[in-house]
Design a protein around this nucleic acid. Sequence first.
DNA 1: CAAATTTTAAACCAAATGGTTGACTATCCG
DNA 2: CGGATAGTCAACCATTTGGTTTAAAATTTG
Lengths: 117, 117
Amino acid sequence: MVEQHPVILDSIFHALSDTTRRAMLRDLAEGERSIGELAAPFDMSFAGASKHVKVLEQAGLVQRRIAGRTHYCRLNADRLAEADAWLRYYERFWTRGLDTLEALLRAEDERAGKMGK
Amino acid sequence: MVEQHPVILDSIFHALSDTTRRAMLRDLAEGERSIGELAAPFDMSFAGASKHVKVLEQAGLVQRRIAGRTHYCRLNADRLAEADAWLRYYERFWTRGLDTLEALLRAEDERAGKMGK
DNA sequence: CAAATTTTAAACCAAATGGTTGACTATCCG
DNA sequence: CGGATAGTCAACCATTTGGTTTAAAATTTG
């Protein structure tokens, strides 16, 4: 069981590992935003915020549309879904009130089952 | 709507942004592992792998139990659940066959609804 | 005790990160 | 045209990252 797109996951999780960038994504969840609108909430230079947007864009989390002098960004949730898909593998370890130890035992059982085939 | 634990999310997503560390977590999903066992698959110095484990540990994704000279690690999925909870907010943008544009329109509608109250 | 095993710690290195400032490009408007 | 607006780019800086090597600590084993 090998990851399909490790480099892409690297870039997605890296993009998500910064508070400023996660806040920008929240903003984008409410609709299209210009770079200036994305930058406004932060006590940071415009160019600094612009770099954060570029990180999001290069991770594929955001898509850019240029209209005149304004660059509009919109969320690309497909990439978030890839991160979610990676995490989903571990879902059994935290859902349905199982404690982690019990889930680990279950994982070991499953593994033993596979090896037995 | 503000994030509860931004610094913790930073460290979790950062820990997940490296292929080696994600592979270690996959390994740990099958049961407890010593540092040496975690390091074995990688073409990397032992000390290098040990540093990766430390990153996972400091992000709270892994817990360490010391038995003699051997350090055993086990998965702490609660922290993965925190990352998942963050992502879940965006679930509506990729589920149920909605395309992203439609979901964005829906988000804008919801927002308009809130502002109307 | 001495040697082997498991792991950390410290020092070091190159590259990437997150931020700045200043100059530049492009567009819109009067 | 000329000025204001939106944004990028390049250079720079301090810090972090991911990796190495060597030394050292702790434990087990002969």
